[in-house]
Design a binder for these strands. Structure first.
Length: 230
DNA sequence: AATTTCGCTGCATTTACGTCA
DNA sequence: AGTGACGTAAATGCAGCGAAA
């Protein structure tokens, strides 16, 4: 409300007074639709200033042969049209952002399922009877992971074995002679490389320091990805 | 100095009308 | 010619502000 009283602008009031309040114009009264020339000038002014100062309004009104009130109303309506267009544009932008996020989410969901499957296969192969020592050995386990995340403790793999998968530590697997497990890791890499979009771009963060790097230090993250309901 | 009134503005909503398919 | 959809000028109501009383 930056409207300050301006005696010059007050002219408009007297003009307004000539128009009876609440008067409805008859159908026969010639009105409406400013000329192309009038619209062109109004649009030109609107481009540089969306609000007219009272003096400028009077000047424009004189120039166009309109009532100052008509100019004021035109600017008012023009601002409203401009606002609704801007809202539409904002909506389209937000919608596009949402769609991108939604497709990222779907992709991540599928990758999660795939990784769970890989883990299950690895878990089964590691638990084979010919490798009993491996199952109970426990090499440099990430105790933080195991302690901080209940859902992790329920996982079929122990912490150190999961780390072997995540960081490509193949020592234990070679020790166990598990060529199959190595193939699984390769297939994961292939899966990533065949992704329609590079993972870094798709996820929006660096994989090495991001999703896998923080997996064991962020229990909430593990909880989230450990659940089946998303 | 605080309060009230007046006149103005802007905005949201509604109404009335012109235009077009 | 009649009609509905749409665009737009104008009306209406309300809130906020500054100036004057």
């Amino acid at each position: 409300m930056e409207g300050k009283y301006d005696p010059v602008a007050h002219e408009e009031l007297t003009e307004q007074a000539q128009i009876p309040w609440k008067k409805k114009k008859s159908k026969t009264e010639n009105k409406r639709r400013f000329s192309d020339e009038q619209i062109r000038l109004l649009e030109t002014i609107f481009e540089s200033e969306t609000k007219l100062e009272p003096r400028k309004k009077l000047q424009v009104a004189r120039e166009l042969g309109l009532q100052p009130r008509q100019v004021a109303i035109w600017f008012q309506n023009r601002r409203a049209r401009w606002k609704s267009k801007r809202i539409e544009q904002d909506y389209r932008t937000l919608r596009a952002d949402y769609d991108i996020l939604a497709s990222r989410f779907e992709f991540l969901k599928k990758e999660k399922q795939s990784l769970i499957l890989q883990l299950q296969k690895l878990s089964e192969s590691v638990a084979e009877p010919h490798d009993k020592n491996k199952a109970s050995k426990g090499v440099d386990g990430d105790t933080k992971c195991e302690q901080s995340n209940p859902s992790f403790q329920q996982a079929p793999l122990e912490g150190n074995e999961l780390l072997g998968l995540q960081f490509g530590n193949s020592r234990d697997m070679e020790h166990a002679g598990q060529a199959q497990a190595r193939e699984e890791l390769v297939s994961i890499d292939e899966y990533r490389n065949k992704s329609p979009v590079s993972p870094e771009i798709l996820y929006g963060f660096d994989l090495a320091d991001g999703i896998f790097g923080q997996s064991c230090s962020n229990p909430q993250w593990l909880n989230f990805w450990g659940r089946e309901d998303h």
